[in-house]
């Protein structure tokens, strides 16, 4: 395979890249915290009014919130929420976006014209504006639920995948190996699967990594506005929002969730940047 993505050389290059390593380290750290949450943290719902609004201490490393709940537990369980929701959104939008983009680029013609215009339309409307409008309307129509948030973000988020896939497919279509395959009468689906998708996978992984950061930020923003995932489920933006009441008396309630949002977005950005560096170098060499 001429574009073996997972070759040994390539893997070692990813880890030689500082950005990648740091980014990957941060994400791994947060993901582990999230995965191990039931082991390392207490019940994030357990209230204890005698212990309310206590500053960080050995017993409560992040302090406690207005109901005396352990903030460390809430933030760590929040990592589960944020990562799970962000991953769901990214995967769904990746599947939808790549499919639409590939179909559009590959078949061209009127299909491409229409899809291209639709992509333009979605790109024109600022994402957060659209998200807020959609979540607001879904809330009214179907009640607040995590799936509403996921749906609303997917509606805006698939576009970037579609656009990038379409671009790649358009350029690959003219490449020799695709033309050859076509000449020997390979079926469309075979060409898409065998040639186009493997070649598109690099840029899409870069995009997906950067996109994870974006999506985490969007979820947190919606949570902060009170339009996202609702209490008692712990979610960073929403904990931060409930803590802004206490910014003068208990600033730790806003500090720690914010720190985790920033860290995880940073992690994905670093990893994405690093991967891009690696992949750009790769394209230069070939």
């Amino acid at each position: 395979m001429e574009f073996a993505f997972a070759s040994e050389v390539f893997r070692s290059r990813i880890f030689k890249n500082n950005l990648c390593t740091i980014g990957f380290g941060i994400i791994l750290f947060i993901a582990m915290l999230g995965l191990l949450a039931p082991v390392i943290a207490d019940d994030p719902y357990k209230t204890n009014l005698a212990e309310r609004l206590k500053p960080p201490s050995l017993e409560h490393p992040f302090g406690t919130d207005q109901l005396g709940r352990d903030l460390f537990s809430r933030v760590v369980h929040g990592a589960r929420t944020s990562l799970f929701v962000a991953m769901t959104i990214s995967l769904i939008s990746m599947a939808i976006g790549c499919l639409i983009g590939a179909v559009s680029g590959y078949f061209g013609g009127i299909i491409d014209d229409i899809i291209g215009r639709i992509i333009d339309v979605f790109l024109a409307i600022p994402e957060l504006v659209f998200n807020i409008a959609l979540v607001g309307i879904f809330c009214v129509a179907y009640g607040v639920s995590t799936w509403n948030v996921i749906l609303a973000v997917v509606i805006t988020n698939w576009v970037s995948y579609a656009r990038i896939t379409r671009g790649i497919v358009l350029s690959l279509k003219e490449k020799e190996f695709v033309l050859c395959a076509k000449a020997i009468g390979a079926r469309d689906s075979y060409i898409l699967l065998r040639h186009v998708i493997p070649n598109a996978i690099g840029p899409i992984i870069v995009l997906a990594t950067l996109n994870m950061g974006n999506v985490i930020m969007t979820i947190a923003s919606l949570g902060f506005l009170g339009l996202g995932i609702q209490p008692p489920t712990p979610e960073w933006g929403q904990i931060l929002n409930s803590g802004k009441n206490y910014i003068t008396t208990a600033p730790w309630i806003t500090f720690f969730p914010g720190l985790f949002i920033a860290l995880s977005v940073l992690g994905f950005n670093l990893l994405g940047e690093g991967l891009r560096d690696v992949l750009e170098k790769r394209t230069l060499e070939y």
């Binding site: 719902y45 357990k46 209230t47 109901l67 209490p231 008692p232 409930s242």
Partner: peptide
């Protein structure tokens, strides 16, 4: 009702 922030707190406590 999520527009009543104090009541959201009360509800979480009552739930427990």
């Amino acid at each position: 009702d999520n527009s009543q922030s104090d009541q959201v707190l009360v509800a979480q406590l009552v739930q427990q």
